[in-house]
Write a protein that binds this DNA or RNA. Structure first.
Length: 869
RNA sequence: GCCCGAGUGGCGGAAUGGUAGACGCAGGGGAUUCAAAAUCCCCCGCCGCAAGGCGUGCGAGUUCGAGUCUCGCCUCGGGCACCA
């Protein structure tokens, strides 16, 4: 062989690893364990370049940790339930199960050639009955522990397709298939009591030191702990059995500015009022013709309806306020009712201006009272402001102090209670869909809702279902629902709701520690392997998935399925940026969007057309790769053309791992050229036929003598050890792009080196070791070409020799007034006074000073000199 | 709308508060070649002949010194509870 040929090299080394069992994880108490996990993929059909990025990063960590003496667990599985499988079945008539398993086979077939160091013996899919049966068992434990309950909740209902729609399926208020306006409908649904754990989930964030700060902040804000006042506005006349309206506010200090009460559309009182107020009923119906997402509610035009009811202000019974229904008030937060304070809340102000409600702006101001016009004045929480005739007697206080004073005042006066409130809502897990984990309960006419017996698990999904009619196939199945009641034996009906797919992904990491066990987990295994030492995945999962998984770990621990230490299951988290791509869109005859894959489109700058038809394509700015938007890039082309190592090297070198990247393949060829160059260097070294003479200790360099200073061997050894230090730091710090850059520099150093053949071979073997986490096949090949013993995958990571990392002299930049003007080359340990003298003698400094003495002279030894003139 | 990020040459990006632009892509020049491919060498932020000046989305501020810290904006991206 005379040139780099990944097509030959890569399968050969993959077979060697497989034969060696290099990546099979076994418990071993003599070694520190390390559990690396990438968020498992949804089997959408093909892997895309974002997957390659994710799994390559994880593989770098796994291989590096293995080389540094850890017993590594690095598993892979499939998040296999979900809507796309049903959509595919509806679109092309297949079965979701067939579609899903075929996709898994395809994707596994695409992933294996990447040479990932995965223990494939642990693979499972969440749609395997062996997995979801254990999940049903967990559900029953949670149910028994009182962590699951049923209540009514609102869903998006498509009246034509007779089906519940996901928020994603609601487009401009209409069903994505039927085009019919979506309705809100209330269904009885299952919920996990995650909100009972709000405080714990919040407090737990403090301990997650190896999580990105931004993720902890996002989770904390999501949980949304707040302190406020709960109290009642008495109705001037009782209405439908209520005497007053309970409100919750986080700004009780602005109570003097109250000018109306706002009720959520779904507030119980509103529901009651609707019955005999057709105008209100029409208004509410209008508001309900809207999706359920918070985004939609918050961005919709603010609208209100005066109920005609009046309430009394708690501080002054003579003061009456109108009660409005408003479409921006959330029933799920607080009491579903607020008081509006237009002067000190922007949204309330806009509402008040629209409906001509009073704006009371006279009791708090920055210094002098100023009338509020278009912008509400929100009293700052931590800055002192002036309070005028405030009922608490405050005159000057921060918002926070005013809130506290108000809380005490209301509590003492007895008309309000201070209350801690969380934004976090209970987790609704019911889905009216086929392709999910069946909820293992039975509805019995005698006993009510009865849990299945564990010995009946798994409750399997029936295979004989069809998707040619609207609605949930489980509901329509001729026999599947019919079961005897587990308690009394009378004929009963199975629950037909399946679980939210977030449930599936909330404990898979624990299942990987004993994927074939007859119980959800096995304590010995889960105790050995948990926690996940490094979790890696897209930042788009920063809130929901990670929060649900954290809740699940607590619940599992409570039920004895996880050890105490695993309540926080992810020790370290790395959120990689997304690989984005433009979305190519056309419209069908009805004006609905049609998306096109990048490979179906011919693009020229800002213009694009469908290659096959010539139809003009609208280019929508880049967004995260998503199957539904079809803006996915298949890595197969790069892998086919250049091999897996090039794909891996390129995706790692391209940009910092945490940052989003707009995908472009420009440069993939250059990555391949580089790997070829490394191969040629190794090949030349092999031809030179030199032995390094240190076969016994390929990595134990620190005991060796340092080559004489000034020799090419010395320079090469320095470059080598610089590279070891830099690449190690790059990998440890998730700066893979920098690690790659350092390896480029090291390659240049080796290529230019005049050192002996033996010294070069030695350097190249270390280069192979340093490259192994990124380009494992090429690294093995070079290792073997240069006489390395055994598999490189089993060798220890090289150690940098500190003697070769230090410099004797440093270049010290000289700044004049902060601008670099000159530099000094000085001994590393030269003392301050000598540096000052040299700096002042410098030509540029002399010119700048022009005979004067410097105002200030800053010397940071080893760093910089700054002369202030 | 709310929460969280990001913004540096033509491009991807580098830079413990201390020489902005490492490393690479693209581009330019040269060597080699009958020619090409491949490879190797050199140049490459902007303005300027030069001296020099200007430069990290915009505007302020802190500091001897700011890409980095603070405040206010702009633009783009992610999330917003039934996409996964």
């Amino acid at each position: 062989m005379s040139r780099y040929s990944p097509a030959d090299i890569e399968p050969r080394w993959q077979a060697a690893w497989e034969e060696d069992g290099s990546f099979t994880a076994r418990r071993d108490d003599t070694l520190p364990k390390y559990y690396v996990l990438e968020m498992f993929p949804y089997p959408s059909g093909r892997i895309h370049i974002g997957h390659v990025r994710n799994y390559t990063m994880g593989d770098v960590v796994a291989r590096y940790k293995s080389a540094t003496g850890h017993n590594v667990l690095h598993p892979m599985g499939w998040d296999a339930f979900g809507m796309p499988a049903e959509n595919a079945a509806m679109a092309s008539g297949g079965h979701p199960k067939d579609w899903t398993y075929a996709n898994i086979a395809d994707m596994r077939g695409q992933m294996k050639p990447l040479g990932l160091s995965i223990d494939w013996s642990r693979e499972f899919a969440t749609c395997d009955p062996e997995y979801y049966g254990q999940q049903q068992s967990l559900f029953l434990d949670f149910l028994g522990a009182g962590m699951v309950y049923r209540k009514n909740a609102v869903v998006n209902w498509d009246p034509v397709d007779m089906t519940v729609l996901a928020n994603e399926q609601v487009i401009d208020g209409c069903g994505w298939r039927s085009g019919a306006p979506v309705e809100r409908r209330e269904l009885t649904q299952w919920f996990f009591r995650i909100s009972e754990h709000a405080e714990e989930l919040l407090d737990g964030l403090d301990g997650l030191e190896k999580w990105p700060e931004k993720v902890r902040t996002m989770q904390a804000n999501w949980i949304g702990k707040s302190r406020g006042l709960q109290f009642s506005f008495d109705l001037t006349a009782p209405s439908h059995g209520s005497d007053g309206i309970e409100v919750y506010t986080t700004r009780p200090d602005t109570l003097l500015g109250a000018s109306f009460i706002g009720l959520a559309v779904d507030h119980p009182l509103v529901r009651a009022l609707e019955a005999d107020n057709s105008g209100l009923a029409a208004f509410c119906a209008e508001c309900r013709r809207m999706g359920t997402s918070e985004e939609e509610l918050e961005t919709a035009e603010k609208r209100g309806f005066d109920t005609g009811l009046r309430v009394r202000h708690p501080l002054d019974p003579a003061w009456e306020l109108p009660v409005w229904v408003a479409n921006f008030i959330l029933m799920d937060y607080g009491t579903g009712a607020v008081f509006g304070c237009p002067a000190h809340d922007q949204r309330d102000l806009e509402f008040a201006r629209k409906y001509d409600l009073p704006v009371i702006d006279t009791f708090v101001a920055l210094s002098e009272p100023a009338p509020v016009k278009d912008t509400a004045f929100v009293p700052p929480k931590t800055e002192k402001v002036r309070w005028i005739d405030h009922f608490t007697g405050l005159t000057e206080a921060t918002g926070e102090e005013a809130i506290e004073a108000t809380l005490s005042y209301a509590e003492e006066a007895g008309w309000g209670v201070s209350k801690t409130q969380f934004r976090l809502r209970d987790w609704g897990l019911s889905r009216q869909r086929y392709w999910g984990c069946p909820i293992p309960v039975v509805h019995c006419p005698n006993c009510g809702v009865v849990p299945e017996k564990k010995e009946n698990l798994p409750i399997r999904l029936p295979d004989d279902v069809s998707f040619d009619q609207p609605g949930n196939p489980l509901d329509r199945h001729p026999t599947w629902r019919d079961v005897p009641c587990p308690t009394c034996g009378t004929p009963a009906k199975r629950e037909t709701d399946t679980m939210d797919t977030f449930v599936d992904s909330s404990w898979y990491f624990a299942r990987f520690t004993a994927p074939q066990a007859e119980t959800p987990t096995v304590m010995d295994d889960v105790s050995y392997w948990m926690n996940v030492d490094q979790y890696i995945g897209g930042v788009e999962h920063a809130i929901l998935h990670l929060l649900y998984a954290r809740f699940f770990s607590r619940a599992m621990q409570h039920c004895g399925h996880l050890p105490e230490k695993a309540v926080e299951p992810f020790e370290a988290l790395f959120t990689q940026g997304m690989v984005t791509h433009a979305i190519y869109q056309t419209r069908d005859a009805e004006g609905r969007p049609v998306y096109h894959l990048p490979e179906e489109v011919t693009r020229d700058g800002d213009r694009a057309q469908v290659t096959a038809t010539g139809e003009a394509v609208e280019i929508i700015s880049s967004a995260k790769m998503s199957k539904s938007k079809r803006n996915v890039v298949d890595p197969a082309q790069i892998i086919d053309a250049f091999g897996a190592d090039t794909a891996r090297w390129f995706i790692l070198s391209d940009s910092p791992p945490e940052r989003d990247v707009e995908w472009t393949a420009a440069g993939a060829e250059a990555a391949h050229k580089h790997l070829s160059r490394v191969w040629r260097l190794a090949d030349a070294s092999r031809m030179a036929g030199s032995s390094t003479g240190d076969e016994a200790a390929p990595n134990g360099v620190s005991e060796e003598p340092v080559p004489p200073a000034g020799s090419p061997e010395h320079d090469l050894a320095r470059a080598t050890h610089r590279a070891i230090a830099d690449v190690t730091a790059g990998i440890e710090g998730f700066a893979f792009n920098s690690a790659v850059a350092k390896l480029y520099a090291f390659t240049n150093a080796v290529a230019k080196s005049k050192a002996s053949a033996a010294a070069q071979t030695k350097a190249l073997r270390i280069m192979a070791q340093l490259m192994a986490p990124m380009t494992p096949h090429l690294a093995e090949e070079i290792w073997s070409m240069l006489g390395g013993e055994g598999l490189l995958a089993n060798t220890a990571w090289p150690k940098a020799d500190p003697r070769l990392l230090v410099d004797d002299t440093v270049v010290l930049p000289i700044q004049i007034n902060g601008k670099r003007r000159s530099e000094l080359q000085v001994a590393k340990d030269m003392d301050r006074a000598d540096i000052e003298a040299l700096a002042l003698a410098d030509d540029a400094v002399q010119r700048a000073l022009d005979g004067a003495t410097p105002k200030k002279l800053i010397v940071v030894p080893g760093r910089i000199v700054n002369v202030v003139v």
